[in-house]
Computed example of a mutant assay.
Amino acid sequence: MAPHVLLVDDSTTVRMVIAAELREAGFRVTPVPTLDAARRAFAQYRERDPFQLAILDVVLPDGDGIDLLREIRQDPTLERLPVMILSGDARFGSRLRGLGVGADDFLGKPHSKSYLVSRAHLLTGNTQAPAASRAFRVLLVDADAALREDLAKILRIGHGCDVISLDSVDQAAQLLEVEGASVDGSVVDRRCFLRVLGLLRGKQPNGVPMIVLDDSPSATWPPATTAKRNSAVASALVMPRTIDPATVAEVMARRLVEEAPPSVSSSGKLPIDTIDAVRRLARGA
């Protein structure tokens, strides 16, 4: 029998979209709008058709999805139920708060369909599901909220990526402290690049594609001495902050396709001559 998923979100549109995506992928879905309805669903299906996954929105009309997560973890019959937190809150606090009390993953709004489906299959142990690649996960670290919002929107909608948007290195450190947390690529401000690079190298020794946004693209950076000491620094692509965010997203998508393992995918495509032109611009050529 197909895995049974409880979806809790007060938005009719979100419930319709996610339920349709999961059903198309072979899941059975019970969508409800409130905490009270979720509790009644648990009671109704507990014996005859238990849930194999719960997807919980953080903010609900009658309470907090994190409170329901705590109830689930304190219930002996539900404590091992996989739970994904669903939230449009771009701040990292809700992610850490949910993962800190036993959530298995965080799904942002707007969400990546491929990431949702692949994680749902994995968390439910659905071995009969057709093999499918998951979405690339991209980490954005920059204090400019407007820039992050533009990049995240393009990466999500235009390239099917799952995006984690943070405004500081401290938040990135919190993310990477979570067991299993990893990223496939990163776009960072020059001022925090080396610290983010250190965090990523500590978590993922093989490194990931990185783009560094530089206020002075004509400057020679990184310094040759630093680049010689660290091949990961040398491979980081420097791009001017003033360049169109769509171009930054396209270059990142292409680098993900070229450098990431086959278990992940993205629709991003960019001609090689365009990438070369951006590299020349970043070097001040």
Rank of each mutant, 00 (worst) to 15 (best):
P3F: 00
H4Y: 07
V5S: 04
L6A: 15
L7N: 05
S11C: 15
V17M: 08
A19M: 08
E21L: 14
R23T: 05
E24D: 14
F27W: 12
F27H: 10
R28A: 09
T30L: 02
V32L: 05
P33A: 07
D36K: 12
D36V: 12
D36Q: 11
A37S: 07
A37R: 03
A41V: 04
A43Y: 11
Q44F: 11
Q44V: 15
R48S: 07
D49N: 14
P50F: 12
Q52A: 13
A54E: 09
P61N: 06
G63Q: 09
D64R: 10
G65Y: 08
I66E: 04
I66R: 05
D67S: 15
D67H: 08
L69G: 01
R70P: 06
E71V: 12
R73S: 11
P76G: 10
E79N: 14
L81A: 03
P82G: 01
P82A: 11
I85H: 05
L86V: 10
S87Q: 02
R91M: 14
S94E: 07
R95Y: 14
L96W: 13
G98R: 00
G98S: 00
A103R: 03
D105A: 14
F106A: 11
K113Y: 15
S114P: 11
Y115A: 09
S118N: 11
R119D: 01
N126R: 14
A129D: 06
R134K: 12
R134N: 15
R134S: 13
A135M: 15
F136Y: 09
V138Q: 12
L139R: 04
D142A: 05
A143L: 09
A145M: 12
E149D: 11
A152N: 04
I154V: 12
I154Y: 00
R156K: 12
I157V: 13
G158F: 01
H159E: 03
G160E: 03
G160Q: 08
C161N: 10
D162L: 06
V163F: 04
V163N: 02
S165H: 03
L166T: 04
L166S: 01
D167C: 04
V169K: 02
D170Y: 15
Q171K: 13
A173S: 13
L175V: 12
E179I: 12
G180W: 04
A181K: 10
V183D: 07
S186A: 15
V187E: 00
D189A: 05
D189T: 09
R190T: 02
F193D: 00
F193S: 00
R195Y: 10
V196N: 00
V196R: 00
L197P: 01
G198W: 02
L200S: 03
L200C: 09
R201V: 14
Q204Y: 12
P205M: 05
N206I: 15
V208S: 01
P209N: 02
I211D: 00
I211C: 01
S216I: 06
S218N: 13
S218G: 15
T220L: 15
T225H: 03
A227E: 06
R229N: 14
S231H: 02
S231R: 09
A232E: 07
V233W: 04
V238N: 03
R241P: 07
R241T: 06
T242N: 14
I243T: 06
I243G: 13
D244G: 13
D244S: 15
P245N: 09
P245A: 07
E250K: 06
R254A: 13
R254Y: 10
A260W: 00
P262R: 14
K269H: 01
K269G: 11
K269I: 03
D273H: 15
D276F: 12
V278F: 04
L281D: 13
G284D: 07
